[in-house]
Amino acid sequence: MTHSGLKRTSLYAGGSSPGKLLEARFYHEDCLVYDLEDSVAPAEKDAARFLVYQAVRWHRPPDKYVLIRVNGLYSPYLEEDLEMAVRARPDAIRLPKVEHAEEVRRIDARISAIEETAGIAVGQTELWCNIESALGAVNAKEIAAASPRVAALALGAEDYTASMGALRSKAGWEIFYARMQVLEACRLAGISAQDAVFSDFQDEAGLREDLTMTRGLGFDGKTVIHPRQIDLVNAAFSPTPKEIRNALRVLEALEEGERNHTGVVVVDGSMVDKPMERRARTVLAQAKAAGLWKEEG
């Protein structure tokens, strides 16, 4: 089994706990983030590096997009984190609290140097930038475009809210602007847009509501705080059976229109235009990747 290409869910696995690192590979998250930062105490940073290296380099789950979250860009741990993380050959390195494009370029150069020494194709390691401050949100477009390595921006709501002096709420109005900043930056750069965590993992109804909004806004996926959230989030970022049916009807109608040389194609009383066609193709591509639909023949 190989990775589906979808990035609907990313789950953090704490780099201090071998049990959690092992179990995390068996949940249904699309992206697994091995963490060196928040879940690891300062005195255990070295131990976590050894553990995460072993897990990613030699026991990498074949069906997941694998990331390593390194410590803060101005922390004393970063340099050694990068030395390890690049060599572990994850799909991407996840950078906490990115605020300037310049920071991305600096890390990019370091990664290139390590890739070269280690005999890894230069450019292979992707970057996910966490946007978790007002400054990061304002500079999101430049950050997204700072390096071809940047494959996603991910919103970190807790720190962002703190930087704004706002109160975190379930409705999420306090992060609405940041969400749109991140989303727009990602769409302009053609990369994946990752929504912030929904903190109360006991509240399934709240999570559903949150997902309805963020999926509607256009996000591709979401960081989850607990394995229990994975199935719900995956489902929310997958096309529904109705969406798949509609997409198929749109494409069938277009094909038929082409065969009959009809100028205008109409489905359910609406004219099928380019954006509608594009949306239908995206839905089917996602459905295929999620195993919800198979091409005939």
Binding site: F50, W58, E80, M84
Partner: peptide, 24 residues
């Protein structure tokens, strides 16, 4: 792999060195 990681860490701590990742 956990035993290996814990051993590497303990040896580095006992020898008071930081690991040279280019060994990998």
């Amino acid at each position: 792999c956990v035993i290996r990681a814990r051993m590497q860490c303990a040896v580095c701590r006992a020898a008071q060195i930081s690991y040279d990742w280019s060994r990998e």
